Simulated assay, not measured.
Amino acid sequence: MKVVIATGNPGKLKEFKRILSPYGVEVLSQSQAGVQLDVEETGTTFEENALLKAQAVFAATGLPAIADDSGLVVDALDGAPGVYTARYAGEHATDDENIQKLLANMQGVGERSARFVSAICYVWGEEKSLTTRGECEGSIGFTKRGDGGFGYDPIFMVGEKSFAQLSAEEKDAISHRGKALRLFLEAFGRLMEEK
C-alpha cells in the first residue's frame, strides 16, 4: 500500500518510513508523489491541523495521505509553544532559534514538566479520515544534550537522557509519534478488516 506523508520535514519523513515500512506500507514523500504543498495550519488543535494537511495532500495526489501535527506543550508556559511549536521563534525559525527562545522563556522556572504530543491523521477519501493521538511525558532541560533527532529533541528530557541522546529504536518505543502511529496501525488494521 502506498501513502503520501504530508510533511516537508525530513526528520518526520524518516521516522514515518522507519515505523511504517515493517507493516508493508510504502511511504512516499510529497515530492515523490509530484506535489509540494505547504498547508496553512489554521487549526487550534494538533488534530485539526493534521486533518487539514492530510486532506490537502489527498486532494492533490488522489493517494491516501498521512499527516502528523505535533508539538511541545510546556506546563509552565500555559501549554506553549503548542500548535506553534515549529514557528515558535518566527515563521521560518530554525530548530536552534526555537530552542533558544524556549530556554530563554524558561529561565528561572523550576517546574519544567512538558510533553510532546502527536496527532496522526489518515485520509483515504472524501469524508474518510482516521485520527489518533500519542503523548510522551518529560521535562525541559537546561541545556542542549545529544546530537540525534531534530526539533526540540536536545532539550526534551525523559529521565536522565534527552530525546537527542536516545537511539532511534529507544525513541520510537516511547515517543509521541511512535505511540500515535501504533494506535493508528491498530485502528487501520481494524478498518481494513471491515472492508
Results as ranks from 00 to 15, higher is better:
Met1Ile: 04
Met1Gln: 07
Val3Met: 04
Val3Leu: 09
Val3His: 06
Val4His: 09
Ile5Tyr: 08
Asn9Ser: 07
Gly11Trp: 07
Leu13Ala: 09
Lys14Ala: 14
Arg18Met: 13
Tyr23Glu: 05
Gly24Asp: 05
Val25Asn: 08
Val25Tyr: 06
Val25Gly: 10
Glu26Ser: 13
Leu28Ala: 00
Leu28Ile: 13
Gln32Gly: 07
Gln32Pro: 14
Gly34Thr: 03
Gly34Leu: 00
Val35Met: 06
Asp38Pro: 03
Glu41Asn: 10
Gly43Cys: 08
Glu48Val: 01
Asn49Val: 05
Ala50Trp: 12
Ala56Arg: 00
Ala56Phe: 05
Ala59Glu: 12
Ala59Asn: 09
Leu63Val: 08
Leu63Ala: 04
Pro64Ile: 05
Ala65Tyr: 09
Asp68Cys: 04
Ser70Met: 05
Gly71Cys: 02
Leu72Ile: 02
Val74Asn: 04
Val74Phe: 01
Asp75Cys: 00
Asp75Val: 04
Leu77Arg: 12
Asp78Gln: 15
Asp78Asn: 15
Ala80Arg: 13
Val83Asn: 11
Thr85Tyr: 00
Thr85Met: 01
Thr85Ser: 15
Arg87Lys: 11
Ala89Asn: 07
Gly90His: 01
Gly90Gln: 00
Glu91Thr: 11
Glu91Arg: 11
His92Ala: 13
Ala93Cys: 06
Asp95Lys: 03
Asp95Glu: 08
Asn98Arg: 07
Asn98Ser: 01
Ile99Pro: 12
Ile99Leu: 09
Gln100Pro: 05
Leu103Cys: 08
Leu103Met: 06
Leu103Ala: 06
Ala104Ser: 14
Asn105Leu: 12
Gln107Gly: 08
Ser113Gln: 14
Ser113Thr: 13
Ala114Cys: 01
Phe116Val: 02
Ile120Lys: 05
Tyr122Arg: 11
Val123Asn: 03
Glu126Ser: 12
Glu127Met: 08
Ser129Asp: 12
Ser129Asn: 15
Ser129Ile: 01
Leu130Arg: 01
Arg133His: 03
Arg133Lys: 12
Glu137Val: 01
Gly138Cys: 08
Gly138Trp: 15
Gly138Asp: 09
Ile140Pro: 09
Ile140Gly: 09
Gly141Gln: 04
Thr143Tyr: 14
Asp147Trp: 03
Gly149Leu: 08
Phe150Val: 14
Gly151Lys: 14
Gly151Met: 08
Tyr152Ile: 02
Asp153Arg: 12
Asp153Gly: 09
Pro154Trp: 00
Phe156Asn: 06
Phe156Thr: 15
Glu160Pro: 15
Phe163Trp: 11
Ala164Gly: 11
Ala164Leu: 01
Leu166Pro: 02
Lys171Asn: 02
Lys171Ile: 03
His176Cys: 05
Arg177Ile: 06
Gly178Ala: 01
Leu181Cys: 13
Arg182Val: 12
Arg182Pro: 13
Leu191Pro: 02
Met192Asn: 11
Met192Arg: 15
Met192Lys: 15
Lys195Cys: 07
